[in-house]
């Protein structure tokens, strides 16, 4: 191939690459970037889909432990909305000037469940916890995931924490804690009600609310989204009866 032809081909390839990149860019540019606490994965997907259908605004969801997102946001992650699994982190972000003052509100109150993939394994009183029968109890990392913190509170309230501590395995988020249990590697685990409510598999004990501090999950508009109407619209959408019905269908309590 003569050099001139090679140059032309290279130029063409470079041009196509740039065109591809530019073609892909606009679809992303307008999309609202949302950091979603792992426990809220399924409802967030459903909410995003129906919001997109209604408004035509695109939404991009990222899932992970609240603690991990908190760190990323303090380091300048370009999220516009944070759906946390607690109230403390959104508050701290606002205090640090990373969230819009007054934008925080509780979108859901989470419920903790002791769950096993094996039918009949977890009894309706959670007595299995003091039976000493299991090798592995899966929970989310209590330092970074509020559901993990609630699990530890429950174990302490039941006075079995010291006894079961050697069996505890920790997922980096509630999603991994669920996976460890669903795959059968851990016989049982503390997961979010939202993760098991639709499938209706295995056996579970809905942990009484008095055993752990309410998991108040707050949303906050982050500074990168403060002038984005689509981001504000999404937060407003979360308060509509339609959205609240979706959230409740996953077992969460919502403000009346």
């Amino acid at each position: 191939m003569p050099p001139k032809q090679i140059t032309r081909r290279l130029a063409l390839a470079a041009f196509s690459a740039v065109a591809l990149f530019l073609g892909a860019a606009p679809a992303r540019a307008g999309a609202v970037a949302i950091a979603v606490a792992a426990n809220f994965t399924d409802p967030a997907k459903q909410l995003a889909a129906s919001y997109q259908l209604k408004t035509g605004n695109a939404v991009v969801l990222s899932f992970g432990a609240s603690g991990g997102f908190y760190t990323q946001i303090t380091q300048g992650a370009p999220f516009e909305i944070f759906l946390s699994a607690d109230a403390a982190r959104p508050k701290k972000l606002v205090a640090a000037g990373l969230g819009v003052t007054g934008s925080e509100f509780t979108y859901a109150t989470g419920k903790l469940v002791l769950w096993s993939a094996t039918p009949g394994y977890v009894d309706s009183q959670g007595k299995i916890l003091s039976s000493g029968k299991f090798k592995h109890l899966s929970i989310a990392n209590p330092k970074t995931a509020p559901y993990g913190e609630a699990a530890v509170e429950t174990l302490k309230a039941l006075d079995v924490y010291d006894a079961v501590a050697p069996t505890i395995v920790t997922g980096e988020s509630i999603t991994q804690a669920y996976q460890f249990t669903a795959s059968g590697n851990a016989e049982l685990g503390f997961v979010a009600l939202s993760q098991v409510i639709k499938a209706k598999k295995g056996s579970q004990w809905l942990v009484p609310q008095k055993l752990y501090k309410p998991i108040t999950q707050d949303a906050v508009l982050l500074t990168p989204g403060k002038d984005d109407q689509a981001a504000k619209d999404f937060l407003a959408y979360l308060k509509t009866p339609e959205a609240l019905a979706i959230i409740r269908s996953y077992g969460y309590a919502t403000a009346p």
Partner: peptide, 20 residues
């Protein structure tokens, strides 16, 4: 499964430290 003393290795501690 992040068990201190059994499976919580060095790099996992770094990962958790950064998140905390």
């Amino acid at each position: 499964g992040d068990i201190p003393g059994r499976t919580e290795v060095l790099s996992i501690v770094i990962f958790n430290d950064v998140d905390n």
